[in-house]
Structures are given as structure tokens and as C-alpha cells.
Amino acid sequence: MRRLVYYIATTLDGFIAGPDGADPTGPDGFWPIAEDYVQHLVAEYPETLPVQARQALSVTADGVHFDTVLEGRRSYEIGVAAGINDAYPHLRHLVFSRTLTEIPDPAVELVADDPVATVRELKQQEGKDIWLLGGAELAGSLYAEIDTLILKVGALTLGEGIPLFSRQATFDPRTWTLVDHTALRSGAVFLTYTRVND
């Protein structure tokens, strides 16, 4: 069965974005993008690079881990505001929103249904794993469905910002097993955890 994987960049103090929710890797972003960080993404997670990065880096590799990406409205709208209506045309791309009525790119699927029911249905389909891109609200609503965490931990702290999971996530302690880790010379660490069966 396919797994739901929350693959996300986070700071040491557990924030995925600043308080304003802007793209931390954008032109005014704070995220440190070192050469070894980019090389690791290209080698290990090429499908998670947005289309403009794939083009700039001449990345044409198929997905290694994922063939589907899920994101919430706010995360999606960051790309649209930057002129990118589908950052992941090489993946099946679903955007969850109860307020949007249309999407500017016909290849992107707008989903107004319950995210949990949708993910459970996706898990039953054939294919590679499902990438939960974010944001925090969608991750919070899908908290109980996440099978794997891949945290790209940057060597920085923010003090305040948007956490890994929104406050909409219910209090439900989970135990995770570290199954892989990669430490880069630039200070970033990739940590992969699988959920311990309840």
C-alpha cells in the first residue's frame, strides 16, 4: 500500500515558514540553500524540485519516491503569486481547498472533499508514495494518516513562525522510528522516520 509522506523543510525549532507564511526559499526568504543541499535534492529527491528548479538544473529524472503531491490552498497560492500555476507538472498534483472554485492550471486537481477520505482512497491506488508538501493546516488535518516523516532540518532557528502541524491537529502522541539520516557539511540534516504501528 502507498504511504503518505510528510516531506518538509523545518528549522531546528520546528517551523516550516515565518509568521507571514511566505516562501522561505523565495527571493526574500531566509532558508540557507547550500550547494550540497541542492546536490542532495537532485540525487535523492529530484521529483520534489519545482519545475523552474528542475529546468535550471537540467533535472529530467523521474520520481524516485513520489508520483503524487498534495498541498493546501495557501501553499499553492504562494506559487501562483510567483507566476507558477503548476510547480510540479511531472507529478499528479492535488490542491485541497474549500474556498477556491477553480485552479488556473487544468492539470492541477482541486479537491474540496475531506482530505482524510481522499488520502485513504489514494493509498489504495497503485503507484509510488504520496508526498504531503504542506502547509501546516493540511498536515494538521492529515496528522493521523502520515506514515513517514522526512524532515529536511536546516541549521537555523526562527523563534516564531508556522509550525510543522497547525493547532488544528488533535493531541495524539505518536512514536516514530529513525530509519535513515544524512548530515550535510553545510549543516542541514535529512531525517527519515516511519511511524510505529499503534
Rank of each mutant, 00 (worst) to 15 (best):
L122S: 02
A155Y: 01
F171W: 02
I162A: 13
A155N: 14
A169L: 04
G161P: 14
D129S: 09
A183G: 02
T175C: 09
A169F: 04
L122E: 10
E126K: 13
G154A: 14
T157M: 14
V179N: 09
S186C: 03
F171H: 05
T148D: 13
E126A: 15
K128T: 05
I162T: 15
R167W: 05
G159M: 12
A139C: 00
F171G: 02
T170H: 00
E145Y: 03
A144F: 00
R120A: 13
T170C: 04
R185D: 09
A155H: 14
D172N: 01
T177G: 07
A183Y: 07
K152V: 08
G161K: 11
V179W: 07
L132V: 00
G127V: 13
T182E: 08
E121Q: 15
G161F: 12
K152A: 12
E121F: 01
E145K: 04
R120I: 10
Q124G: 15
L184S: 01
L178M: 10
L178R: 11
K128L: 13
A139T: 07
L133F: 15
T177W: 07
V179M: 04
R185H: 04
E145P: 02
F171D: 08
T157N: 04
A136G: 12
K152F: 14
D129V: 09
R174P: 09
F165M: 14
D180I: 08
S166D: 14
F171T: 04
T175N: 11
E121K: 13
W176H: 10
I146W: 02
E137I: 08
L138N: 11
L178V: 03
G134K: 09
S141L: 15
A169E: 03
P163Q: 07
K152S: 13
L132N: 01
A155M: 10
K128F: 08
T175D: 11
E126T: 15
E145V: 10
A136N: 10
L138Y: 04
